[in-house]
């Protein structure tokens, strides 16, 4: 049972890491295009569009690296959950306002329209992050707090 939970945690970690890496690489490399995509929602003031979009892109990338390596997994899962909840709300808002443009979530134009369908997708993507919050797992993990490493050592002894 413990091994199954570890396996699910590992799968969730790798899935989320892959997802965030895929989503972030374009945003990080081409910040001007992503800033324009953020501005399309017309939610945040002009002076926050560029710094906000840069922070969002890099946050996705750093979360992906943390999840891939298993570093601070629970904190990364909390960050991923927060992002997914935010994206879900944003997609609902886009659906309510009738926005028909590309959501700007993933590479490729007009392939991922903003709206209710995208909200459901983002809500589903929050599930693995929620699992990791409850059960971060240890398999293929570099991280863990000194306390949890001590606990593991005591468990082995």
């Amino acid at each position: 049972m413990r091994s199954l939970a570890e396996l699910v945690s590992l799968a969730c970690r790798l899935f989320l890491a892959g997802l965030f890496l895929w989503a972030a690489h374009d945003k990080v490399w081409d910040p001007a295009t992503f800033a324009a995509a953020v501005a399309r929602y017309d939610l945040i003031p002009l002076w926050l569009v560029n710094p906000g979009s840069v922070l969002m892109a890099w946050l996705e990338l750093v979360l992906a690296v943390c999840l891939l390596l298993g570093l601070a997994t629970r904190a990364a899962a909390l960050g991923a959950t927060g992002l997914m909840v935010f994206f879900t709300g944003l997609m609902i808002y886009a659906g309510l306002t009738g926005a028909g443009f590309d959501c700007g979530c993933f590479p490729g134009q007009a392939e991922h329209p903003a709206g209710y369908e995208a909200a459901v997708r983002d809500a589903l993507m929050a599930l693995p992050a929620l699992w990791l919050l409850a059960w971060p797992g240890r398999w293929l993990s570099l991280g863990g707090s000194p306390r949890s490493r001590r606990q593991r050592l005591e468990y082995k002894l």
Partner: peptide, 30 residues
């Protein structure tokens, strides 16, 4: 956990700032 998350956010902000200052495709504040 919250401290780790704060470190993740701070790292992201610092990396984003450096990248946008150094790389030719970087964008300014405005």
């Amino acid at each position: 956990m919250l401290l780790s998350l704060a470190i993740i956010v701070a790292t992201s902000a610092a990396a984003g700032l450096v990248f946008n200052l150094v790389m030719p495709q970087g964008i300014g504040w405005l």
